[in-house]
């Protein structure tokens, strides 16, 4: 009986959390446009969330492109279809690996630090003191971070896609010794921009929104204690990654 009650309470909490998160994101988005100083903050946030993530995304993209190429080459070679390796990689990267892996890395790199940043601001009463100066932290702090995260994730995914291909082309051309002309022309003929590349980027917009919601929720509503902030950053990474994977499935099922 107690256990069932506990489960019920947890479920109610989760639903209330989703409601509060939705409220926060909606308000953050609307109030973002209330203050023109937010545009400058947005630029700074894009710089933090986007530019600072480039090295991580670049490294991951190159290595995933390279490893994936070798692995698929071994499989395809046994069917005598080694020349299709670029196509296989391109399809997987544009549709799945690009958006999903970028989103997972982004949760760890950007989502967790946004949660920690907001948590710290809350513990040191910075939100309270902003409100005392008649400045709405949802407009000035939540808003720009939300918009920046939704914008930067697709941009980083575009970057990931291209860099992963370069990594793949390098392995295919220089290490395996495939003809690079065939590699690229197979890609070009086999992949459709509007139905393979763009849907992947659309997914990454949704992932950006999910990661932003989760990280801002835990930062803004989470426990304002040092240990609470640490736990909330972890929660952001765990829940953000899970939701990205779940929504990936839902979106793929819906879009087909």
């Amino acid at each position: 009986m107690k256990k069932i009650e506990a489960i019920g309470a947890k479920a109610l909490n989760a639903i209330a959390g989703v409601g509060k998160g939705a409220w926060l994101v909606l308000n953050g988005f609307i109030l973002f446009f209330n203050n023109k100083r937010n545009w400058q903050t947005l630029i700074h946030q894009i710089s933090f969330a986007g530019i600072m993530s480039l090295p991580l995304i670049a490294m991951s993209a190159v290595f995933i492109g390279m490893v994936f190429t070798i692995q698929s080459y071994w499989v395809l070679e046994s069917f005598g279809a080694a020349s299709e390796v670029g196509l296989v990689l391109g399809l997987s990267v544009f549709r799945e690996l690009g958006p999903v892996i970028t989103a997972l890395l982004y949760t760890g790199r950007v989502g967790s630090s946004i949660t920690a940043e907001l948590g710290l601001m809350k513990t040191s009463e910075q939100f309270a003191s902003m409100e005392l100066m008649s400045v709405d932290p949802i407009s000035r702090i939540v808003g720009p971070r939300l918009v920046a995260m939704v914008i930067t994730l697709p941009l980083l995914t575009m970057f990931f896609n291209w860099v992963a291909l370069l990594g793949s082309a390098f392995v295919a051309g220089k290490l395996i010794g495939l003809d690079s002309g065939t590699f690229w022309s197979n890609l070009k003929n086999g992949i459709l921009f509007y139905s393979d590349v763009l849907p992947g980027l659309f997914k990454s917009v949704i992932f950006g929104l999910i990661i932003a919601s989760v990280s801002l929720y835990h930062g803004y509503f989470g426990d304002a204690t040092p240990s609470g902030v640490a736990k909330n950053s972890t929660r952001t990474v765990v829940q953000g990654s899970m939701l990205v994977l779940i929504f990936d499935y839902i979106l793929v099922a819906l879009m087909r």
Binding site: M158, N161, W184, K188, I191, L192, F193, Y194, V197
Partner: peptide
């Protein structure tokens, strides 16, 4: 990057 993908690695 997106343009490169569009031009070199896919058919628009």
């Amino acid at each position: 990057c997106l343009g490169m993908v569009a031009l070199r690695a896919s058919t628009v």
